[in-house]
């Protein structure tokens, strides 16, 4: 760990890239499923939720990493929770001020970012033992890994469920006149779980190293 390590060394790039694929928090570690099901009926809330989670994981990682040598180990979980909770409240307030409509759609789920296992998981597993810069990259990477899945799921749910992408109608009216109907089922949370399941299936059939041997 020399100080001269370049900012984007191979190791650091891995911190960013792995959570997007072979170490994805949702599809591989299966964390943060609850909010992934709840906010993915439309793309817009999914994007805002992804950005919020990314901001919280990144900054919480940096703060905990900066404090890592001072935190008394007996209250380290409490310290982590306070940092995460404070960041989430700030995100919630900012959304209420600048993206009021979206904040209403996300309702309780912004507050529930506190309980998102991805964040506490990264703080315990990474930030407590690493320097701020890698911790920051790790936070961004995991936030993005979470976001990518949310956006893929929301894309299919909005397209099939509402015939739109990011609020713009893409299925032409002529289709509806010919008898095409939006699939109401896919708006419901169970179909989000099935969509996540299909993503996991596709990912594992392409990357055999993810399949557990038993």
């Amino acid at each position: 760990m020399s100080d001269k390590e370049p900012l984007f060394s191979a190791k650091n790039r891995k911190l960013l890239k792995n959570p997007l694929s072979s170490d994805n928090p949702i599809t591989v570690q299966v964390l943060g499923i609850c909010s992934a099901l709840a906010v993915t009926a439309k793309l817009e809330p999914a994007v805002v939720m992804s950005l919020s989670v990314m901001a919280v994981t990144a900054f919480a990682n940096v703060i905990i990493s900066l404090l890592r040598n001072t935190i008394p180990s007996r209250i380290r979980i409490i310290v982590q929770l306070v940092v995460v909770a404070a960041l989430v409240i700030v995100v919630d307030q900012v959304l209420k001020a600048f993206a009021y409509e979206v904040s209403k759609q996300l309702s309780v789920f912004v507050g529930l970012i506190i309980t998102n296992c991805i964040i506490m998981g990264r703080l315990e597993a990474f930030a407590l033992g690493n320097k701020p810069w890698p911790a920051f990259l790790d936070g961004i990477g995991n936030g993005a890994g979470y976001g990518v899945i949310l956006i893929i799921v929301a894309f299919f749910r909005e397209l099939l469920g509402s015939g739109a992408i990011y609020g713009f109608q893409v299925v032409p009216k002529a289709f509806y006149d010919m008898g095409y109907q939006n699939n109401g089922l896919i708006i419901l949370p169970p179909m989000a779980l099935i969509t996540v399941g299909i993503i996991i299936w596709v990912q594992r059939s392409r990357d055999k190293s993810l399949i557990e041997s038993n």
Binding site: T70, I71, I75
Partner: peptide, 14 residues
Amino acid sequence: TQSNTYTFLYASIM
């Protein structure tokens, strides 16, 4: 960083 005093101080300031 493991003493009681430190832990209490740390929590209060935080």
